[in-house]
Amino acid sequence: MNPAVFFLKPRHCLSLVLLIFSSGCANQAETPPTQPRSGAPTQQLPPRQVRSATPALRPLANVGAYSAESISGDYTGYQDLKRFIEFMEQKHGFDRLYLNGLFSQAKRKQWTLDYLAKSDQSLKAQPGKGSWSRYRAKFLDDRHINSGVAFWQTHQNTLQRASQQYGVPAEYILGIMAVETTFGSYVGSHRVIDALTTLAFDYRRRGDYFRAELENFLVMTRNERMDPAKPVGSFAGAMGLGQFMPSSFMEWAVDFNGDGHRDLWDPVDSIGSVANYFAQHGWQPGQPVVSPIQGTPRASRLEPGLDRIYSIKSLTESGLSPTIACNCDAPLRLLWLRHNHGDEYRVGYPNFYVITRYNQSTHYAMAVHELAQAIKNAYLKDKKG
């Protein structure tokens, strides 16, 4: 079997993790976007290709003293891994002995596999009563808001430059970092090589996706002159303050501090990379994100969800009206938020959908939005004295 055919099934995805694990460790991988079921067509990027070309002007050597005639350790006898190494040798010019030595150091993470097995079952469940209240409480607190204000004060010039260059308000860059890692206070403790190897060869449901991520990780570390056994991140392989998966790093990470390297553990590069991610996914400067809604959504018989889109005309004809004007003829989403004492509906504009490209979850995007507003308000209040 041609290894290039066997291993490459790229998905349009920044991260799997927060959709599956609704906590702050995003980008973890998301599930592929579903096609809208009604309404006007929506703007979507094409499926991501594996960004794995090595710069042509300078041959890159492997980093780290790894070498072995065969794979030992936890992955002894894994034929799929052996074929993957052959693929990396053929496509990217990696030395087979080097990769044998590297993967002999990789550890199989049984805890991750057990956790994912349980999480996969919960994906089928509908949001329960109070689910939004519980999720929101994890992030809308003094720790996240105060950390956001302090981070903004420290990096205000960088945030201003990123906003001007990419058209993304500073508070939404901060909202992502707040939910993901609380501005780097916890970027994960799992070696990325362990996380990705485990999921690439022992997690059947998303094995193709994680093999592509492992490919990108190896190319990324070689390009950036990093020892592939050193970086740590989430248990699904997400990295840095913004928790990019390796394919997202390859495509959207930027060298925002100008030192010649892209480093997502560096706050400046992370700020620029998150802003670039939003811009490349269609962020519309000056446009709203969400709006309260007038009317009775249940009576309208319109279905909420990210995979269903509506025009403003279809909403108004159903007796629903956003209270914040978009001044645009854009696809809209009906959002369903379940509080402890009742349900709330809102309209999500295209900028809300952009946030969900970071993690395909209504709860996640709403947490980013509300944290962005809370951090901005606290920052401006502190600035006024």
Score class of each variant (00 low, 15 high):
residue 245 M to S: 15
residue 256 F to K: 02
residue 303 E to V: 14
residue 276 N to W: 01
residue 233 G to F: 07
residue 290 V to S: 11
residue 180 E to Q: 10
residue 292 P to W: 12
residue 203 Y to V: 01
residue 223 N to A: 06
residue 230 K to R: 15
residue 252 W to E: 07
residue 185 S to Q: 14
residue 287 Q to T: 11
residue 200 A to I: 04
residue 285 P to N: 02
residue 243 Q to V: 02
residue 274 V to H: 02
residue 260 G to K: 00
residue 257 N to M: 10
residue 290 V to L: 10
residue 305 G to Y: 02
residue 241 L to W: 15
residue 249 F to E: 05
residue 268 V to I: 13
residue 224 E to R: 10
residue 174 L to G: 01
residue 208 D to A: 15
residue 175 G to A: 06
residue 214 L to T: 00
residue 177 M to G: 08
residue 218 L to N: 05
residue 231 P to V: 04
residue 269 D to N: 06
residue 296 T to N: 15
residue 232 V to Y: 00
residue 197 T to K: 11
residue 300 S to A: 15
residue 174 L to E: 03
residue 247 S to L: 09
residue 249 F to T: 01
residue 307 D to T: 11
residue 264 L to N: 05
residue 194 D to Q: 09
residue 209 Y to E: 08
residue 210 F to V: 00
residue 230 K to W: 12
residue 304 P to S: 09
residue 270 S to H: 01
residue 269 D to H: 04
residue 243 Q to K: 07
residue 204 R to F: 13
residue 208 D to Q: 14
residue 212 A to E: 09
residue 225 R to K: 15
residue 198 T to M: 12
residue 282 G to H: 10
residue 197 T to S: 15
residue 202 D to P: 04
residue 206 R to A: 01
residue 255 D to Y: 11
residue 212 A to V: 13
residue 260 G to E: 07
residue 193 I to K: 04
residue 256 F to D: 11
residue 289 V to L: 11
residue 270 S to I: 04
residue 260 G to L: 06
residue 277 Y to H: 04
residue 207 G to E: 14
residue 234 S to T: 06
residue 196 L to R: 01
residue 280 Q to T: 04
residue 203 Y to I: 00
residue 246 P to E: 02
residue 195 A to T: 02
residue 293 I to L: 15
residue 202 D to N: 15
residue 268 V to H: 00
residue 201 F to H: 06
residue 279 A to D: 06
residue 208 D to M: 05
residue 304 P to R: 07
residue 287 Q to Y: 13
residue 186 Y to A: 10
residue 251 E to S: 15
residue 227 D to K: 13
